[in-house]
Structure formats: C-alpha cells, structure tokens
C-alpha cells in the first residue's frame, strides 16, 4: 500500500519534528509515502465556526486530489485527521452538501466519489496494519525503563467509532510497550490540552496544560508521548510559562510517538528532530544509551 502524506500546516511549522520523525519511521519500515500534491489547509476547528460548507469544501479538495491518484491519506495532525474524516462522512450522509461540493469541485476540474480514499492516522496504520508484533521484531534499541505518559489528546479518537476507544484509547500504549517503555496508565489520555485556547484565553489554556504536566510528573513520567502537533506544542512550548504561573518545576520532555518509535527502530538522532524541542528530550535517551 502506498500512501499520501497530508502534512497540514502544523507539520510544516511548529510540528516540524513530527514530520521528520514520521517520514523517518515510515522509511525505516519500508512503507512508501509521498506528500499530497498541492494540498491545502484542512480548515481545522476554527473554520467550522465561520462557514461549514466552505470548511468542508476546502477539505474536499484534498480528498479529490488524493482520489485522483488513488491513494489512502495519512493525516498525522489530529485536527486534519478529524476534519477530513468528518468531510467524508458529511459528503456521504448529506445530499445537499454532497451536491453543492461536487458541483463546485467539478467546476474546478476535480471529481470525488466517496469511499475510494481512506483517511488514516499514522498510529492506526502502525498498530493495525504493520502490527505490534512486527514492530516488536524490528526494535533495535529497546527503551527499557523509560516511563512514558501516553497522551492522545482529543481529536484522534473523535467523533467516536474510530480506530480506538473515544475516551480511553490503548493503541499507543501497546505500541510503546512493544518498544520496551514502561507505559503509565492514567485517566487523562484524552483530556483536552487547551487547543487554541492557549493563545486566546491564556489563563484557561495554561490551566489545562498544567493539569496534564502535573499529572505526568506526579506519576513519575520520564516523558509524555503525543500524537498531535498542537498537543505537543502546548505541552512543550508553554511548559516554562506554566512553571512560572504555578511556581512549580516540571521539566517533562514532550515527544511525538514517532520519535520514540524512530529511536527504537535505530534512526539517527538528527533524523528525528530531537533538537527542535524546547524542553530538552535528549536526556530520555541518555537513560537507555
């Protein structure tokens, strides 16, 4: 199976190390993947608040381009993943939306048929297609003894009926266990990271970030593993600020699950973007080196 990779805006900016590590992991596992040609922004959650039809149409352009080339789309950003799936669902279930958008696409020289293209999250592909057993076999450097706090954020499992449980997912737990990590069970797996509120309503956003960091620390985590660029950004970039507000030292590295996986598969540090994090992450690997 060859995939299209849909970076979305974040993986080209604040989530640059997610892109690096994801591409590296897929290359190491021999899964062919290339960037979706001339993709546009998915519209994220903000777009739906202004004009839903425009939001869906923007997302549909990406689906149409992918379909033209007949490849499934890997959407690593949880917001992109959710929006693209929602667009597919709405185009299938609501005739007035389907007709309007198909007509507009047609005028722009594009077609879209529906279920030919599947939207996948890389975690889904790795756990359910590649498989935990296969990944365990490929591990070259075990992360034995690294206590990881798996944090899924919200949209990767929303709306419900996705590839994992909507409030208590376990896919990443199983993946990290296969890498040798000691995975911490906790009830905040899908608790909101604050999303865009960290930039708009600081007091609220910081509190949500603090809750997660504090709980990770309390449970003795060496690192937080994330699947979403916004979660990673909030927990990493605002950590210093949260430490100041709550007068508490936290110092918890916040990593993409693909970085931990990449390391275990034997990738070079420079291919994982480890140096791009604000809270230093190298110390996590020093433990097992």
């Amino acid at each position: 199976m060859e995939y299209f990779y849909y970076p979305g805006c974040s993986l080209k900016g604040t989530g640059a190390s997610y892109e690096k590590s994801l591409l590296e992991v897929f290359a190491l596992l021999g899964i062919p993947m290339k960037e979706l040609p001339d993709w546009n922004c998915c519209g994220a959650t903000s777009y739906m608040s202004i004009d839903e039809e425009v939001a869906l149409a923007m997302a549909a352009r990406n689906l149409a381009i992918a379909e033209e080339n007949g490849r499934d789309v890997i959407a690593p950003c949880s917001a992109c993943y959710m929006v693209l799936r929602k667009t597919q669902k709405y185009m299938k279930e609501y005739a007035h939306i389907r007709q309007s958008i198909l007509n507009a696409l047609k005028k722009a020289g594009l077609t879209y048929h529906g279920d030919r293209v599947r939207i996948r999250h890389p975690l889904d592909v790795l756990v359910n297609d590649v498989g935990i057993a296969e990944i365990r076999k490929r591990v070259q450097r075990s992360l034995n003894g690294v206590r990881v706090f798996p944090y899924y954020g919200c949209l990767i499992v929303r709306p419900k009926n996705g590839f994992d449980h909507a409030t208590y997912p376990t896919s990443m737990d199983r993946l990290l266990e296969a890498l040798g990590c000691e995975v911490i069970d906790h009830p905040l797996k899908t608790k909101c990271c604050g999303g865009s509120l960290t930039g708009t309503l600081e007091e609220v956003g910081m509190r949500l970030v603090y809750i997660l960091l504090k709980e990770a620390k309390k449970r003795g985590s060496h690192a937080i593993a994330t699947v979403c660029p916004l979660c990673q950004f909030n927990l990493d970039a605002y950590q210093e600020k949260v430490e100041k507000i709550y007068s508490e030292s936290l110092g918890i590295p916040v990593m993409y699950f693909t970085q931990l996986l990449g390391y275990a598969l034997g990738a070079e540090d420079s291919h994982l973007g480890l140096e791009q994090h604000i809270v230093p992450v190298q110390e996590v690997f020093e433990m097992v080196r």
Partner: peptide, 18 residues
C-alpha cells in the same frame, strides 16, 4: 506559504450553493 493552484481553490469556493 500558499498553494500553487489558488485559482482552483477560488473556483471551488465561489461555486458553492451557500
């Protein structure tokens, strides 16, 4: 950053019913 085919996007958005 911007996409190459901005005209295509514009065509889509200007042809929506709403």
């Amino acid at each position: 950053d911007r996409i190459q085919n901005t005209r295509q996007l514009k065509t889509i958005l200007s042809n929506l019913n709403g």
